[in-house]
Design a protein around this nucleic acid. Structure first.
Length: 595
RNA sequence: GGGGUUGUAGUUCAGUUUGGUUAGAACGCCGGCCUGUCAAGCCGGAGGUCGCGGGUUCAAGUCCCGUCAACCCCGCCA
């Protein structure tokens, strides 16, 4: 949709048989060339698609057109003509017609390309990032970025329809003591002081609740100076940040379920189950899936079988239990026929992850039990093992023993590794779930003290009474995550809006009231002037688009992503600055010592 | 900070296991032929610090040591 002008009257991909006979002006990139010496076909591309242009042997611009390099920008004027039967290309939306060029103009020539645009052959990540403007021309990123734009529009529409106000909160704010490493901005006017870029608009959105805007959202940029992962962009990312007043956990779940079911169904053909999404407690998911972001597209649920081995003769597991540990098993239906190499691979994987190793047994159909520990187990125990859910004829069992917390994590990784190796995940489906009842506090082994396990602003379940009467490590928080296909989309919480409860919670975590007043002064003061109960959540926008686009890496849905080391290879960031700039900020640079 | 994988032509990759003649292919690039192609085709050509440094050897892309870079993972990410 554009106003016809001297550059173009139509988009390349818009032309159809109905335009036959019309003279059109098109501008775009040279996508392909097919030259017969005389007759010459040139495929022209713009954002709307591609169209075949024919240049006749006797055209005065034939030589110039033949010399043009791919990805140069040209403009042609020509007549839309039908293709003869047999020359129609059914694979092209514009394949029933072609444009017979009457004029040819070069707007911009292209140098030799670092990688091909028309062929979707993989180029190295480095080359793609260095020439992101070229990479973005290709189908994959054109599609992903268009999808991203539409997803964000749809989010805005859906949130607005649910009576949320969209606001912008400050980008230059203050450093907060909890959480990730901040990006800091030195202050020119205040020597020795720094702004911080927000890790999330957490305090601002809570202030909005106190300020009388009961439903807020924002597509919020968030900045955290932490290392990258495949699903974690270094430095900056976007959240759909939202907060609501006078709600409990279920009210927030209902809003997000409506949003996500609608959004995913709007943009994908994959199956999305109706709300409500399953609710799993943190404790339960750590036991059954060995992770707080379980992938529910396959079974193989982990089970604790410590009691089966508590009286067993098998010494390795028995001693683990005697030392206060556990024995857990990942049952894999249908895996009994796997090769020795498969099981050895799992064992090696566990050792790589720092575990002691992975014992296994298998129940091949119509054959004797086999496996690394089969000969140590008596018939009675083997029969009981074969009876556990997920086991049985044809299954294999993968065992891990040791301290409960470590076993949970290792078993969880085994479960994912098995799904990778055997391709167990259900295809074409998004499996959402809520993880609820996170612990309010946890034991910090390193500093030997109680700390907040998630968000210090979460409301403890049981309120003040729980804080005063329960073991801190037993207290749960109104804190929840939403997970889709093993990807954590978001954390959220019902907030602690009571100053007295806030001071008490921080006291348990070893921070006196003065720290709360100093670090969270703005918010705690607000809570002393009438604060409604409130809560919220903030799903990652990049991750939502990544899931919908079915991309394995978050960089595929970000226009100008940074690399693993948080560098922008196109813009050359980060970069050195002029000494005067540093001087004005009253800071001095001290390079790390070499050696 | 730690572990893993990868690094060979402009690009994507083969060759490395088992050291041995002039390091190959595809796409791209340059030149030529070609009037219905649609990833056009055919003929010819140019293009290489085998990431970098050191070592072993008569001989190293190939083996050893170090180092750099990209990616994946652990730590980290309230």
């Amino acid at each position: 949709m554009f106003r016809p002008n001297r550059y173009r009257t139509h988009g390349c991909g818009e032309i159809r048989s109905t335009h036959v006979g019309e003279t059109v002006t098109l501008s775009g990139w040279v996508h392909r060339k097919r030259n017969f010496g005389g007759l010459y076909f040139l495929v022209l591309r713009d954002h709307s698609g591609i169209v075949q242009v024919v240049i006749d042997t006797d055209a005065p611009f034939h030589a110039a057109a033949a010399d043009i390099r791919l990805e140069s920008v040209i403009q042609i004027e020509g007549e839309v003509v039908p293709r003869e039967e047999g020359n129609v290309n059914p694979n092209m939306p514009t394949g029933e017609i072609e444009v017979k060029a009457k004029s040819f103009e070069i707007h911009s020539t292209a140098e030799i390309l670092p990688f091909q645009i028309a062929d979707d052959i993989d180029a190295s990540e480095t080359e793609r990032l260095k020439h992101r403007f070229l990479d973005l021309r290709r189908d994959r990123l054109q599609h992903n970025m268009a999808l991203r734009s539409k997803v964000i529009s749809s989010i805005r529409r859906r949130m607005t329809e649910m009576d949320f106000f969209e606001f912008q909160t400050p980008i230059l704010t203050s450093s907060s003591p909890e959480g990730a490493r901040d990006f800091l901005v030195p202050s020119r006017l205040h020597p020795g002081k720094f702004y911080a870029l927000p890790q999330a608009p957490q305090q601002f959105k809570q202030l909005l609740m106190v300020s009388g805007f009961p439903r807020y959202f924002q597509i919020a940029p968030c900045f955290r100076d932490e290392d990258a992962r495949a699903d974690r962009s270094p430095g900056e990312f976007y959240q759909l940040d939202m907060e609501m007043a006078y709600v409990d956990q279920e009210d927030i779940f209902a809003v997000l379920e409506e949003l996500l079911v609608g959004l995913f169904r709007e943009f994908t053909d994959w199956h999305v189950a109706d709300a409500p999404f399953p609710r799993l407690t943190y404790r339960d998911t750590m036991l059954r899936y060995g992770s707080d972001k379980p992938d529910l597209r396959f079974g193989c649920e982990i089970q604790d079988i410590s009691d089966l081995f508590a009286t067993s003769e098998f010494r390795a597991f028995r001693s683990a239990i005697d030392e206060g540990g556990v024995v857990r098993v990942v049952p894999v239906p249908g895996a009994a026929g796997q090769s020795r190499k498969f099981f050895d691979g799992i064992d090696a994987f566990v050792k790589e992850q720092g575990g002691k190793g992975c014992a296994w047994i298998a129940f091949p159909e119509g054959a004797d039990v086999k496996g690394s520990i089969a000969k140590f187990l008596d018939a009675d125990l083997l029969a009981k093992l074969k009876d556990i859910p997920g086991a049985g004829e044809g299954s294999a069992l993968l065992f891990v023993a040791g301290k409960a917390a470590e076993v949970a994590t290792i078993a969880g990784r085994i479960r994912l590794k098995v799904a990778d190796d055997l391709d167990l995940r259900e295809k074409g489906v998004y499996k959402f779930c809520w993880i609820v009842d996170f612990p309010m506090f946890e034991w910090d082994e390193e500093n030997e003290c109680v700390t907040f396990s998630h968000n210090p602003f979460s409301m403890p379940q049981g309120g003040m009474e729980a804080l005063e009467t329960q073991d801190p490590l037993d207290i749960l928080a109104f804190q929840y995550d939403i997970v889709c296909n093993g990807v954590e989309l978001s954390s959220g919480a019902i907030r602690n809006h009571r100053p007295d409860v806030m001071y008490k919670a921080f006291e348990i975590a070893g921070h006196p009231a003065s720290v709360v007043d100093e670090k969270f002064g703005g918010m705690i003061r607000a809570f002393k002037f009438g604060a409604p109960p409130h809560g919220g959540i903030a799903p990652g926008v990049d991750r939502i688009v990544m899931l919908i686009a079915d991309e394995p890496n978050i960089r595929e849905v970000i226009l100008f992503p940074m690399n693993q080391k948080a560098e922008d290879l196109l813009m050359g960031a980060p970069s050195e600055v002029r000494p005067k700039q540093v001087e004005e900020l009253h800071i001095r640079i001290e390079m790390p010592k070499e050696d």
